[in-house]
Structure formats: structure tokens, C-alpha cells
Design a protein around this nucleic acid. Structure first.
Lengths: 170, 170
DNA sequence: TATTGTTATACTCTATAACTATA
DNA sequence: TATAGTTATAGAGTATAACAATA
């Protein structure tokens, strides 16, 4: 198993400061070793970069990815309840509650009692919510267009892989 | 732009409870609409799933992905300083500090003053650190093997895409 | 008993800004 | 002035567990 621990021999004990003094663009200068071949590591960095980029774009108009996803699901599944929504976006119901409370306070969604079941709410977007979603969608698509440029025609394949990871690794 | 907002007509106003009553495996039952074609959304879910899976595996032995990545970089770049390390793993130096303090307290890394520059530390793994990294690496590889199964021979391509996202979208 | 939603609580990760000490 | 590292602080996001109302 020691092959796992191999690192470039020339790096074993570099003269002091050789690596440490690399300043700008350091991430290219540093060796990542095996880290470089781990899907999980790159998944983390890519997601991180994508998230930050989206946040920057959407920044002024407030609203974060989690809320955007929630609104999309409500839009596409009017009347859905909180628990099912949570499952759809892979978040616990206790995470969903404050999210929806905020959206409701902002007048973007409505929560109405369900006829048959007194425990659930039916979730709907308000007119204002649809307008907001519309704007957010444009920002999201603009952001994703940037990703599209990178992914190109491998996009369907790429998304299929990400879906399988989500479903099979979780 | 209204094509953006299209949703399945049959879902426009489902009879009450139709969607909300879907319980197990709800994420397949709910329509994600355009969300489904956004790279960013799937990136988020896939990363999330991968992270949770890794945490579960490594759980008992403590230590999270961020720390693992830091140890890998130190291992592969002995003598690196904290700022450069931060850049390599895409984290601010103020995020790196407590991380390294903990690793030092646990005897996994050493921080020694640098000859030429009194401001920097040189980071090295201790013998215990190398042993721990070795174990963690096995867990990480085991985890990544699961991802490998999914990605298959598209792995180089897949990683290349993730890297480009990280570098170009950030 | 099981489920929906709420709350209390706590934890992890992260960054910004202000600081010290060096350069 | 500029850089390395630390600290104080704050904020996002999340989950677990206990709970009330309802099924």
C-alpha cells in the first residue's frame, strides 16, 4: 500500500523556502499528489466555485441556491408539502421550515391548510413569487451558461454522472 | 423568455394531495422542471452526497475532508507555509489557522519557524501524521473507488471538467 | 403508533476585518 | 507599505431530538 504514499522524490525535503516562497497562483505550484486523482476532491472545489459564482451574480437580488431550488420545486409541483419538498432538495424538514417561513414572510409563497390532512400545508408560489422566480431563473441560466461553455456537448453525460453519484453514493 | 417558465401542463393544479401524498422516494416523484437541466444544481447534490458518504466512512476515525486535503498538501509539499496551503485548498488563511492548530495539538503536523522569514511557519507532517494520513488515504481511496465505479473510463474527462469549472468559474 | 411541521439547540465551515510581528 | 499569521466575530447551512397536532 505504500505506493499510495508516493510523492515526487524531488520534493522530499526541498531546501527551506523553495515551496513556501511560491506566492501568486500557488495552487498550481503546489503538488496535490494523489488528491489530484480523487473525484471527491475536485467535486468539492468545483461545487464551491460554482456556488460562489452564483452567489456573486445573484448577490444584489438576495436569495441563495437553496431557496431558488425550493421555489423551483414548488413551482413545478404546486400543492407539494414541506416534507416532500425537503426530500426533493435533499434537506431535512427542520431545514426546510425556516426557509419557507422566510419565503412566506417575503410574500413569495403561500402555505394553505390541506383539506384531507390537517397536518400538512400545501405550498404554492404567489404571483410575486413567480415574478421573483422568473428573475432568479434568468440569473441561474446565465450562470449555467458559463458552465455550459465548459461542459459543452458532454453536458447530458456530465449531468447523468452527477445524478448517479447523488443517487448511488448517498 | 416565458418558455423558461414552462412546467408540465398536467401539473398546473393537481387535485389536492396528488403530489403531496407521495411519500417514499419522493424526489423521483416530484418534478424538478428546469432545475433538472442545471449543472450547478446537480453539482451541489452530487458533492453533498459524496461528502456525506465520505464522512460516514471516516466518521469513527474523526477527521474531515478539509483536514485530509490539508494533510495531503503538506505531505506533498513539505515546508509549505499556511498562506500557500490555503490557496492550494481554496480557503482563506483565517480558515486555515484553526485547522492547523488542531492538527498540531493532535501531534499530526509540526510548525517550525522559517530561517529566512520570521513571519512564516514551515509545515511538516509528523511521523504520527504520516501514519494517520496513510489510513485516511485508504478510506478516501475506498470512497473514491465507489465514485470510480460510477464514472468509469470517463474519469479523466470528468475530473478535467471539474477542474475547469473550478478554475474558470470561480 | 406514525407522520407533519415546529422549535431548541448545537455544530461545522467559512469569511471579513482588525491586529501583531515581521519584512 | 506589504505580507504571514492570529483572533474576534458573525453568518450560512445544516441536523438531531423532543414536541404538539393530527392521522
Amino acid at each position: 500500500m505504500d505506493a499510495l504514499m508516493d510523492k515526487p522524490a524531488s520534493r522530499r525535503r526541498p531546501r527551506a523556502g523553495a515551496v513556501a516562497s511560491a506566492e501568486a497562483g500557488a495552487q498550481e505550484d503546489l503538488s496535490l499528489g494523489l488528491l489530484n486523482s480523487l473525484v471527491g476532491f475536485h467535486l468539492r472545489l468545483a461545487q464551491d466555485a460554482s456556488f460562489r459564482s452564483y452567489s456573486r451574480r445573484v448577490g444584489l437580488r438576495d436569495l441563495k441556491p437553496g431557496r431558488f431550488a425550493a421555489m423551483m420545486v414548488i413551482y413545478n409541483n404546486p400543492g407539494v408539502n414541506q416534507t416532500a419538498l425537503g426530500r426533493a432538495i435533499a434537506r431535512d424538514k427542520s431545514t426546510v421550515t425556516p426557509l419557507l417561513q422566510q419565503l412566506e414572510r417575503q410574500g413569495l409563497i403561500s402555505r394553505s391548510a390541506q383539506a384531507g390532512d390537517g397536518r400538512s400545508f400545501q405550498l404554492h408560489l404567489t404571483a410575486a413569487g413567480e415574478r421573483t422566480l422568473h428573475e432568479l431563473l434568468e440569473v441561474a441560466l446565465e450562470h449555467d451558461r458559463k458552465l455550459d461553455e465548459i461542459v459543452g456537448d458532454r453536458k447530458p453525460d456530465f449531468i447523468a454522472l452527477l445524478k448517479r453519484i447523488w443517487r448511488e453514493v448517498g
